[in-house]
Amino acid sequence: MSSVWQYLTLGLGRETFGIDIEHVQEILDYRAPAALPQAPAFLVGMIDVRGQSYPVVDLRTKLGLPPEAPTPATRIILLNVPMPDRTMRVGFVADRVFEVTELDRAEMETAPDVGGRWRSHYIAGIGRRGEAFVVVFDLVRLMDGDAPALAGSALAA
């Protein structure tokens, strides 16, 4: 059985992240979500896609990165995240989407636990695409909780 899986690669700042393609439903051009009162800072609002409501998560805020205004390259990635008790429909705002690429899970490294700035429990693994690293999200852990995914983030207060 092959350990090569397909991932949608996306960019946030200078970092490249990957999402298992089996959870990706659609990629949309950015549009401003309808705001939700009392929502956590990373939940920027809701959008309607063909009669389905999607909460929209700003990945930059969720990861504790500084906010940036949307650009023509900004996308909303619609996902079906398999949570323990249900499937969660959610949209992730990404600075840009690159491509679908193959990564070998057998060659993925675990997230560094010491000295790194990422909270490693949000990371399923780190793959290589040529000379570049792709940080692969653990979507269930990323969506389970309100804390930013960057250790020591100003947003964690």
Rank of each mutant, 00 (worst) to 15 (best):
residue 20 D to L: 15
residue 22 E to F: 07
residue 23 H to W: 14
residue 24 V to P: 05
residue 24 V to K: 12
residue 26 E to G: 06
residue 26 E to I: 01
residue 27 I to V: 15
residue 27 I to P: 00
residue 27 I to E: 05
residue 28 L to G: 00
residue 29 D to K: 08
residue 30 Y to P: 00
residue 30 Y to C: 00
residue 31 R to S: 14
residue 33 P to F: 01
residue 33 P to M: 07
residue 35 A to V: 08
residue 37 P to I: 04
residue 41 A to D: 10
residue 44 V to D: 05
residue 44 V to H: 02
residue 45 G to S: 02
residue 45 G to L: 04
residue 46 M to Q: 09
residue 46 M to Y: 00
residue 47 I to N: 05
residue 48 D to A: 15
residue 49 V to T: 08
residue 49 V to C: 08
residue 49 V to F: 04
residue 49 V to N: 08
residue 50 R to I: 12
residue 53 S to P: 02
residue 53 S to N: 11
residue 53 S to Q: 13
residue 54 Y to G: 07
residue 57 V to G: 03
residue 58 D to S: 15
residue 59 L to A: 14
residue 59 L to N: 00
residue 62 K to V: 01
residue 63 L to T: 03
residue 63 L to M: 15
residue 63 L to E: 02
residue 64 G to L: 11
residue 65 L to S: 12
residue 65 L to I: 13
residue 66 P to N: 08
residue 67 P to T: 14
residue 71 T to P: 05
residue 72 P to R: 13
residue 73 A to K: 15
residue 73 A to V: 11
residue 73 A to C: 04
residue 74 T to Y: 06
residue 75 R to G: 08
residue 76 I to N: 05
residue 76 I to G: 02
residue 77 I to Q: 00
residue 80 N to M: 13
residue 81 V to R: 02
residue 85 D to L: 08
residue 86 R to L: 06
residue 86 R to Q: 14
residue 88 M to W: 04
residue 90 V to G: 05
residue 91 G to P: 01
residue 93 V to G: 03
residue 94 A to F: 02
